[in-house]
Design a protein around this nucleic acid. Structure first.
Lengths: 215, 215
DNA sequence: ACCTATTTCAAACGTTTGTATTAAACGATC
DNA sequence: GATCGTTTAATACAAACGTTTGAAATAGGT
């Protein structure tokens, strides 16, 4: 993390609020809990953000979006090593960025949890999530992959495939406890890298089928 | 639904509690809201269930699990039409059961939301979800698919593939609003059936790759 | 009809919630 | 070092929270 414990109250509030909101959800966290964790006074939230909901939105604007950009940058950096990235490289870069690359496990869980909440129960913040991150990311990936696919490929099918890849990555990111329970094994680094291999090969087969169908 | 508004207070509480918990989450729903929706007295929850948390657990035991069995029965009924179901039939049966078959859209959203909450932020109820539904369902599907795969296939890879299929089905189930936003189209029945086709073909290609790799 | 067990109800409990208010501490500028 | 706007602190407040209580209502058995 950039600053373990920021010296200014506002940033400490944002940091702790993000952590707690991602762990328990908006309603389950009290402003007292946040201000205590941020080691400041109860009134600090109202002074710096007006109210609790505005703090929640600010978490997305000032912490979640930058972090999403961090993931995107990792993704791009990973790909820049290849001169002519194939679809498999793109999928691997994407999965790696989310599952083992861009940040610590806790940070990633925090990130995904916040997003997932907005996906399932949108608040105002969903507009930020979709317009700032999800839609641009879809666009990027689609345009990267498209050259290696037939010209006449239905764009809907491609988009659905990208959603499918995202669904796998998200699922293996957020359902770790249940996956551990079902498979009876820890989600350790070796297993994680096998999961990434699986996602890549599964997705690649799916994408190959895509272009076969069409031509 | 079986009983639109049950005549007994306990069932009305369970029904409204399920609806509200799935919409807003445990903490965001008050017992006053539930009892008002169930058209009964504030004290009813404590009389019938002891406390709010126990009501939440009872929702899973008495409403969620039976409904999951409903999905499973639809799945089995769908497959029983085929004498020798292929993997594609199994995947299609599974996706159909979740996305357009077993129950109404609202009911399914309610069902998936409750599960998703437990996947991401487990409470006591996660034990019910995993042991009563997810694990048995994994077992069933695995044993149905296994015959059509090579003998020496790594069981871990098969399990990961099943998780991947589940991830797609869940994602297309719960992220409908965002998918609509990104694709710029309604999630109408025609689109839904194309989504199922996509899931089946994508998953099938993934599974085929699975057996190719191994032999 | 009476008694008993079960269920419903209105009212109140003590806490905790988000927010508002006021004064004190701080930091920069002159 | 006095004065300014900015930030923190202590405290207050009404509203909402989950839970408890004891009385009223209801249902079933005799």
């Amino acid at each position: 993390m950039a600053t373990p414990t920021p010296d200014n109250t506002r940033d400490r509030l944002l940091m702790q609020a993000e952590r707690l909101f991602s762990q328990k959800g908006f309603a389950a966290v009290s402003v007292r809990e946040i201000t205590a964790a941020a080691d400041t006074n109860l009134a600090a939230i109202n002074y710096h953000f007006g109210n609790k909901m505005n703090l929640y939105l600010s978490v997305f604007q000032e912490r979640w979006v930058p972090r999403a950009h961090g993931v995107r940058n990792f993704f791009r950096g990973y790909l820049s090593k290849k001169s002519l990235p194939q679809t498999a490289d793109i999928v691997r870069a994407f999965a790696t960025a989310f599952l083992e690359g861009a940040m610590s496990d806790d940070e990633m869980r925090c990130h995904i949890n916040l997003m997932l909440r907005e996906l399932t129960h949108p608040t105002e913040a969903v507009n930020i999530v979709v317009s700032e991150v999800i839609r641009p990311m879809h666009h990027d990936i689609r345009e990267m992959i498209r050259p290696s696919l037939p010209e006449n490929l239905d764009i809907e099918k491609l988009t659905l495939s990208i959603f499918s890849i995202i669904s796998m990555i998200l699922y293996f990111g957020f359902a770790k406890p249940v996956i551990s329970l079902v498979m009876g094994r820890e989600f350790d680094p070796q297993f994680k890298s096998r999961v990434i291999d699986h996602i890549v090969s599964f997705a690649m087969d799916g994408m190959n089928g895509l272009s076969k169908e069409e031509t």
